[in-house]
Nucleic acid binder design. Structure first.
Lengths: 335, 335
DNA sequence: GGCTGGCACTCTGGCCCTGAGAGTGCCAAT
DNA sequence: ATTGGCACTCTCAGGGCCAGAGTGCCAGCC
């Protein structure tokens, strides 16, 4: 599609623009070691690259900046393998070596880690309850009409659901329901829990408890995805336009949006979404680098880095990959 | 300290500056209905107010802006009762009327509520585990050497702690330890849990489990304070200096700092901390409005609003008060 | 004595202009 | 095909200028 020299020129433009945030002119490109042609030649090629949509000019007689298409080509074709630096690797290693108490806390810390590795905002979506299997179920009577259902998952996560009844429930029924729930749920993942044959009239109280519990667990499992976002302060320095920053932060505050954004990108088989590819107009100047992580070999959740389109893709890609990998492993061991 | 007219002038300056973010001149103050003196007189008083440290001039021949001392006097002496508007009240009512599943989720939502009420960033510090009593304790064996300790509190919160052993633990010992932990912990608050007479050599495995469990619970209870921060995007529009915003966001990312900030303010008996009173240099241009909330009549946690010094104090104060009140009530009922 | 109108003074912010700098496109020459 | 040269364009920083807002002070007035 692009001859070798044009590709090199494009690469030079993108890397320099990522560094300097300034439109880059033919002179700079020609000065780079690995392109040994004159500025005039570079100009011709750059004009061609612009015609083909890889570059753009903010205005006549300024240098070129990459378009979304330009970035895309860069990450797809020109991206280096991107190893993490020694100190970063060390940071990751140290982080996962230390023991983490509660999974929520750990995921929040992971988002901070990822943010500090990449100097961008980072998103960590907690494991979906459906994936992990249930390790234990417990019913706790709060008072006569309220029961708390505590479910412990194989990855160490704990979810709790409060059940409310319109009639008093006695301790015996609670115990009976607890036993039944245990046999139903323990060892299986939430998605696979079989609902007992539904009699329209649930005669016994314990049956009512079981049915309500299952309903709650299944109903809420989806919306209770935990999202952790770190390093939002980085976004401020990465963008100059105040308006933009505000919009971006606003998006990050809507957790549901963030989750679906990440999963949408992933479902399209991408690991990088650039500009409008993210699916959000407000993120037109952003890029999203995502990776899934697995627990015990099964897809569990997503992590990602959100930065300006002119971010260090190779760094971000490797950071995201490494962290996803380690995170999955740690969570697997924990289970 | 200040004669009536000066107080009125100060009030006029502060309110107008809060509205416009512009230094306010003598003309504007004189134009206000309730001060019926000429601009010249206002000028004299404003000069006096400046000499006394309530006002400052950005430069000669600009209007005056309030100093920290000016805001402080305004808040202490001139603050109206500050009722919430009808729509805001409605918003709060609706929020607490709806049922909330998990306490963490609810607290996070509360921070968003508070933020949307005040158009500022909002902080919600979750209930401290020490306050609420333990409702139930359960030990779950993860594998031969790892046990998960799940503690359910009276307010519906659940904390989990993972215990790791250097030797295999058998199911019998776990059960025995579970029983003992239950008798020790259930019904008391974490702070009051009595440690059993410490024999230097714990002969039985179950005793080791109990001792490790108590150690974990007591040790981690303090650092596992949950903090929820909402509406950070508001900060961007409230400040113009990009540098400032970045610093402020950075502070908000450090949860421990935020918690101690709030509690420090509260411990000084303040409900409003202005500028440097917050105790943080980076928050010199910010003000912090805080309120504690109670569960079953006992101090449980803190909520707060962080905004620019030129924030709507009366609005923020009443919003914080109302939300703290309702939040405490809701959490009390839930337990 | 306190208040006021008048007046000279000051400082900022927006505006225009200008020149330097960076970069381009094109063309003729190699 | 590549290159050096050249005329052209556009931005950006700096400087000068003016209007506007506000002040401080003073002399007069009630």
């Amino acid at each position: 599609m692009l001859d070798e020299r044009k590709a090199k020129i494009l690469q030079a433009v993108v890397t320099e623009y990522i560094e300097t945030a300034q439109p880059v002119g033919s002179g700079h490109v020609a000065a780079k070691a690995d392109v040994k042609v004159s500025p005039a030649t570079v100009r011709n090629d750059m004009a061609a690259l612009e015609a083909e949509g890889f570059l753009a000019q903010p205005h006549t007689s300024a240098g070129r900046i990459p378009t979304e298409k330009g970035y895309r080509f860069f990450v797809d074709q020109l991206g280096g393998p991107g190893r993490l630096g020694a100190s970063e690797t060390q940071q990751v290693r140290a982080f996962f070596a230390q023991t983490h108490k509660q999974i929520d806390q750990m995921l929040a810390d992971t988002s901070r880690l990822l943010s500090s590795l990449t100097h961008n905002a980072a998103v960590v979506v907690g494991p979906q309850p459906e994936v992990t299997t249930v390790r234990s179920v417990q019913l706790v009577s709060l008072n006569a009409r309220n029961i708390l259902l505590v479910v412990v998952f194989s990855n160490g996560a704990v979810e709790k659901y409060s059940l409310e009844f319109s009639e008093d429930v006695d301790e015996l029924s609670v115990n009976a329901a607890g036993v039944q729930l245990s046999t139903l749920m323990v060892g299986t993942s939430l998605a696979k829990i079989s609902t007992p044959s539904e009699q329209n009239e649930q005669t016994s109280i314990s049956e009512k408890i079981v049915s309500l519990a299952l309903e709650k667990v299944k109903g809420e499992s989806h919306q209770s995805e935990h999202v952790f976002i770190g390093g939002t302060s980085q976004m401020v320095s990465n963008f100059d336009a105040v308006r933009k920053v505000s919009e971006i932060l606003h998006i990050l505050e809507e957790q549901l949006v963030v989750v679906s954004l990440l999963e949408d990108v992933l479902s399209r088989g991408l690991s990088v979404a650039i500009g409008r590819e993210t699916g959000s107009e407000a993120l037109a100047d952003c890029a999203l680098v995502v990776a899934p992580y697995e627990i015990d070999g099964e897809f569990a959740g997503t992590i990602g880095v959100l930065g300006p389109t002119r971010m260090h893709y190779d760094q971000a890609l490797s950071a995201v990959a490494v962290v996803a990998n380690r995170l999955g492993r740690t969570l697997s061991e924990n289970g």
